[in-house]
């Protein structure tokens, strides 16, 4: 009989996992183990390599052309650029915004991967109903946010106010956008440690900003910061 405690037991378990022969609980446990136990993962990888030649004799078949179109549409045609993926942010940006990013000095990011206090976060705030578009880059080394307004103009007698939001806390005002297209605002010390959870938002406020210290007008755009 087979002894499950023998090293061969693990190797067999790996083979059964790869073939998909295990019962539900065993399967779950083995999958979890393959994700955390490097030695077991190596056994699983070994069996995947060993079994794959069973597909050698399978002839390639060209899928219909429209299958690719459907796939690309499903993956990439999803409306506004999702900010959950790092480099993605930059790919979705207009040329003007990229030029602004270069102006703001972020091009050095590509060379030195950020870490700790040097981490850089960015986002693009796009108005859902207005043509407002603002690029924001948070440089933790400096503790400030560089803003570049690519599009959008305030209504007569109104201001755009920028807010920093962390979960379960009231929005903190970072000031109103100036008439210049680029500006820098300081991020309060208390929020710098929570950069990874920060969402930025822009609201429509009376000229000079909200009189109450809280957003009073409608929120025109909001987006989480993403680490680059």
């Amino acid at each position: 009989m087979l002894d499950e405690s023998m090293p061969q037991g693990d190797d067999l378990l790996a083979a059964e996992l790869v073939l998909g022969l295990l019962r539900e609980e065993e399967q779950r446990e083995a999958l979890a183990r393959s994700a955390t136990d490097p030695a077991f993962a190596a056994l699983v990888a070994g069996w995947q390599e060993r079994f794959v030649p069973m597909t050698d004799a399978i002839a390639p078949v060209n899928p219909r052309r429209r299958a690719k179109k459907r796939l690309l549409k499903r993956l990439f045609d999803t409306g506004p650029v999702p900010l959950s993926q790092r480099l993605w942010v930059w790919k979705g940006l207009s040329f003007a915004a990229l030029a602004a990013a270069a102006y703001l000095g972020v091009q050095q990011l590509a060379v030195d991967p950020p870490s700790g206090a040097d981490a850089i976060y960015a986002t693009q705030l796009s108005g859902t109903e207005t043509p407002l578009q603002v690029l924001a880059v948070l440089d933790l080394a400096k503790g400030d946010i560089a803003l570049n307004r690519v599009a959008g103009t305030e209504a007569e007698g109104r201001s755009f106010e920028l807010w920093a939001i962390v979960p379960e806390a009231a929005p903190v005002s970072l000031g109103v956008l100036t008439a210049q297209s680029t500006m820098r605002v300081s991020l309060p010390q208390s929020l710098r440690d929570r950069a990874g959870e920060l969402t930025l938002a822009i609201s429509d406020e009376p000229a000079g900003g909200s009189p109450t210290g809280e957003p009073t007008g409608s929120v025109l755009a909001a987006a989480p910061l993403t680490e680059l």
């Binding site: 790869v18 999958l31 393959s34 993962a41 990888a45 070994g46 995947q48 390599e49 060993r50």
Partner: peptide, 25 residues
């Protein structure tokens, strides 16, 4: 499995052996 595999302890040589063996499958 393979999407969630832990970083494998198998070095390139070890897996090359497995791949070599595979030809005998």
């Amino acid at each position: 499995p393979g999407l969630e595999l832990a970083a494998s302890t198998a070095g390139p040589e070890q897996l090359a052996v497995a791949a070599g063996e595979a030809r005998r499958l």
